[in-house]
Amino acid sequence: MRRSVGRTSLARERRRRGGAARRSTLALALLAVLLTGCDDALLGITWVRSDSHVVVDGARQAGALLITGGDVSLAPGSRTDGPVLLLGGELTIDGLVMGDVLAPGGALRLGPWAVIRGDLGAGAAFERHPDALIDGEVTVGLGLPSGAVEPRGGGWWWRVLLQALATGALAAAWARWAPRRLAAMADAAGRHFPVAASLGVLVFLLGSIAAVIMAFTIVLIPATLLVLVLGVVAVGTGWGALGFAIARAIARARSLAGGPLATWAGRPVWLAAFGGFDVALLLGIVERVPWVGGGVALVVSLAGLGAVALTGVGGRPFVHAGDALAAGDA
């Protein structure tokens, strides 16, 4: 009797938490969507997209300054409070900037009266007058990372090895502290690979575009970074889940057949660690195979990502809608 009361209250608690999670999700989504439609002035940002603009002597430019086109001049004697982000167009600084200046795109020129109190990061198109003062750190040569850059010699081996170790550790952590979640993700990835890979395609594409859109709202840059970190963890978790599914299947088969690996079937943490390690290692090697290697690694990664999404990070088992239909038809 006591146990049944305990179960009921546990179920009620779960429902309460589920409701709170739903409401939080809805509120966050609402906030995110509304922010994307905000006028830039509401966000404390001045966004320059075209034409010529000058912050004249004695004028103060409050808030952040985002430049994606046109040309902007911060004249001697002017003051700009917030960070300055140059993505396109031209920017000439000859006044005081209290925050950081980041210019991965566009052309940046620092005149003799320029004073930057924060850090400066500039791309290739950068000119600096010798009298320009920068209090913070200066980084020149910013730009988008190039996929053509390859680690020299055997450097990639270390990257693959580290990747494999991290995946194995992540999978072992899931198996140790959330074994049911790992099992649900492994079932989805192993038994419903095409569905998981298909959903992985959508999660990857839409997640990427959502991250880019959020980054351009400036205020949601932290959310973009969070999405990127979560994305990496999700892919690692997916690899771990796939590895666990494979290792578990092998261990079960060995368990039936007997032999030295028979006892592994009862050790999910070890199975997850070795499975995750092996899958990440194999993918690291396979992706270097010309023509097909990258594609294979991509599809497997997408399936892992999809399995994480299909099960709500393992919170619920995935039930294929077609299975119910098949049972009905039979």
Partner: peptide, 14 residues
Amino acid sequence: LVHLGYQLDAQLGL
């Protein structure tokens, strides 16, 4: 998301 992407592209001239 796709339409937001087009709007972003159109406004920023990326």
